[in-house]
Amino acid sequence: MENVHRSTEKTTALPELQWFETPLAATQENVLSPLAWEELACRQVGKGATPILHLWRHPSALVIGHRDRRLPYAPQAMERVRNAGTSVCVRPSGGAAVMLDRGVLNLSLILPNPQRAISLHEDFRLMAALIADALVPWSGEAQTGEILGSFCPGDYDVSVRGRKFCGIAQRRQAKAYIITAFVMIEGSGAERAQAVQHFYTEAAGDTSAGVQQQDYPRVNPATMGSLAELAGVPSVEAYTASLRRVVESRTAILPADGWLVQLEGLTEQMAALRERYDLQV
């Protein structure tokens, strides 16, 4: 486990950014919408557009990974979640299942990669450092390192006192890439973990289905916490304001380009993502 602030000297520089927040109302019908938006925006960054920091939330969604979708009863488990009124999708980035709601902030750094040579460890540390620095008004205890038993586990889990509040993943395109994170700010980390655990139990089925221990995370709700629970952060809005101050202290935030609001081809991109990741195993 590593203190996030001790690793900041190793991180890559933060380029000038466009700060773009997708309104909650624009994502609530289908959680694929902001993911498809990022796919299109990433292509534009690959063509020379200014890098982007994208922030978005969703009122109620389960976003699963590629390996999760291959579990034997994943389609049935996904349908059960949809029937309960929660949006479900398979995301194009790495990682495993994550539960989203209004208390979870999603962040994506969309960066160019013209030489097709990136240092994901440095970029993961950069994202972890931004997230930890934004927490400093309430706590300086953020650490990175995998939290066993958490949902969407990884080497760059960000935690406070052994309980994870943030996970980081990445998505590559030909000439640009996305470093993406979820940050649980309000609400109960354990309740979200229980919902993910329920999905995995149903998607894996009984032992006769041939699912191995390593095929999906074994989620322990006690390993997850929100920043409200761990550090007394009062709201998503308060944390977002702190994050903006951190970003402004490191780089210039440029006016957002007009095309960010109305990206052409969003409906088609959503259909393509569903066809590629959701419907096919």
Score class of each variant (00 low, 15 high):
147 I>D: 03
74 A>L: 08
200 Y>S: 06
242 S>A: 11
279 L>V: 10
183 V>L: 09
114 P>I: 10
212 Q>G: 12
89 C>R: 00
126 L>N: 02
79 E>D: 14
202 E>Q: 12
195 A>Q: 06
253 I>E: 05
200 Y>D: 05
28 Q>H: 10
62 L>F: 06
119 S>K: 15
169 A>H: 00
101 D>F: 11
223 T>I: 09
99 M>E: 14
142 A>G: 06
170 Q>W: 00
278 D>Q: 12
232 G>H: 06
173 Q>N: 13
237 E>N: 13
40 L>Q: 01
173 Q>S: 14
32 L>I: 14
165 F>L: 04
73 Y>C: 14
15 P>H: 07
141 E>K: 13
118 I>C: 14
40 L>M: 08
215 D>T: 00
233 V>S: 04
247 V>P: 07
5 H>A: 15
204 A>V: 02
104 V>Y: 00
270 M>W: 09
274 R>Q: 10
165 F>D: 00
219 V>F: 04
4 V>C: 10
75 P>K: 02
219 V>S: 02
129 A>Y: 00
253 I>W: 01
178 I>V: 15
143 Q>R: 11
20 F>Q: 03
98 V>K: 01
9 E>P: 02
16 E>S: 15
214 Q>G: 14
73 Y>N: 12
5 H>W: 06
143 Q>F: 05
111 L>S: 03
196 V>K: 01
241 A>T: 08
257 D>M: 04
236 V>I: 12
172 R>V: 06
205 G>Y: 03
146 E>N: 10
158 V>Y: 05
186 E>Y: 09
106 N>W: 04
34 P>M: 08
138 W>L: 07
176 A>K: 02
156 Y>C: 06
170 Q>N: 09
77 A>G: 11
193 A>M: 06
166 C>W: 00
247 V>R: 05
241 A>F: 09
52 I>K: 00
235 S>N: 09
134 A>V: 03
143 Q>D: 13
279 L>G: 12
